[in-house]
């Protein structure tokens, strides 16, 4: 008899060794809250959506935005803002429909795929925000160079001294450096949170995928 057959025989003999929970004990359990990984992904994702939405709102009345109004750059800023919100709505809709498809009654593989799909949508959203941050920073920089009076003076001065290239290069490099730090911090944070949360799911999913190859 092979190992599993022996185990099966004993497994069947174990039937009456399991605890017996009463009706009331089980009833109490259904009133408690779940602490499943899906719930955590949902909460973290909502926080991510909220985080980026709050950031865009928080900067709405900031001095720099008021100053931008003076540059009459509405033809650039308004479409960019609208685009940002449309994309937020699109991602939120996709996230929500993905989330609704997660069901514990699917096969193990399907369930894992649906969770990872939901996670991927939020990942794409974060990716979009980082790209948006990158582009809007450089658009803002371009507007500053072009329309800000203080900048015009500095540019004129640099131009007179023959250091125009140096000025542009330094500004762009400093901006790039600041952006790299900000993006690095954000990505590091995500990597840590999801690394911990999805480690087991990822390894189980790749175990199932391995079977198909």
């Amino acid at each position: 008899m092979d190992e599993l057959e022996r185990l099966k025989k004993d497994w069947k003999n174990q039937e009456d060794t399991y605890p017996k929970l009463s009706y009331n004990e089980i009833y109490k359990m259904i009133l408690k809250k779940s602490s499943s990984i899906v719930k955590w992904i949902f909460i973290i994702s909502l926080l991510e959506f909220a985080f980026w939405a709050v950031i865009s709102f928080a900067f709405k009345d900031a001095d720099s935005i008021v100053r931008f109004k003076e540059y009459h750059a509405e033809n650039i800023m308004i479409p960019m803002t609208i685009l940002g919100y449309l994309i937020l709505i699109y991602f939120f809709y996709r996230f929500y429909t993905n989330y609704k498809t997660i069901s514990a009654t699917d096969s193990a593989k399907k369930l894992m795929e649906n969770i990872l799909k939901t996670r991927r949508t939020v990942k794409q959203y974060v990716g979009f925000n980082l790209i948006y941050l990158f582009i809007s920073t450089f658009v803002a920089l371009g507007i500053l160079f072009d329309r800000d009076e203080n900048f015009s003076e500095i540019i004129d001065k640099a131009s007179a001294n023959g250091e125009l290239f140096k000025l542009y290069a330094t500004t762009i490099l400093v901006t790039l450096f600041a952006l790299a730090i900000a993006i690095g911090l954000i990505l590091g944070f995500y990597y840590l949170i999801y690394g911990i949360l999805l480690k087991r799911l990822n390894s189980n999913y790749s175990e199932l995928k391995k079977l198909e190859n």
């Binding site: 602490s35 499943s36 990984i37 899906v38 955590w40 514990a104 009654t105 699917d106 096969s107 193990a108 369930l111 894992m112 969770i115 949360l197 087991r200 799911l201 189980n204």
Partner: peptide
Amino acid sequence: TWMYRVGLNTAITLYRK
């Protein structure tokens, strides 16, 4: 049968140790 599925899915995927 339905319990096997939900039980295993919870143990393998949903349950956060």
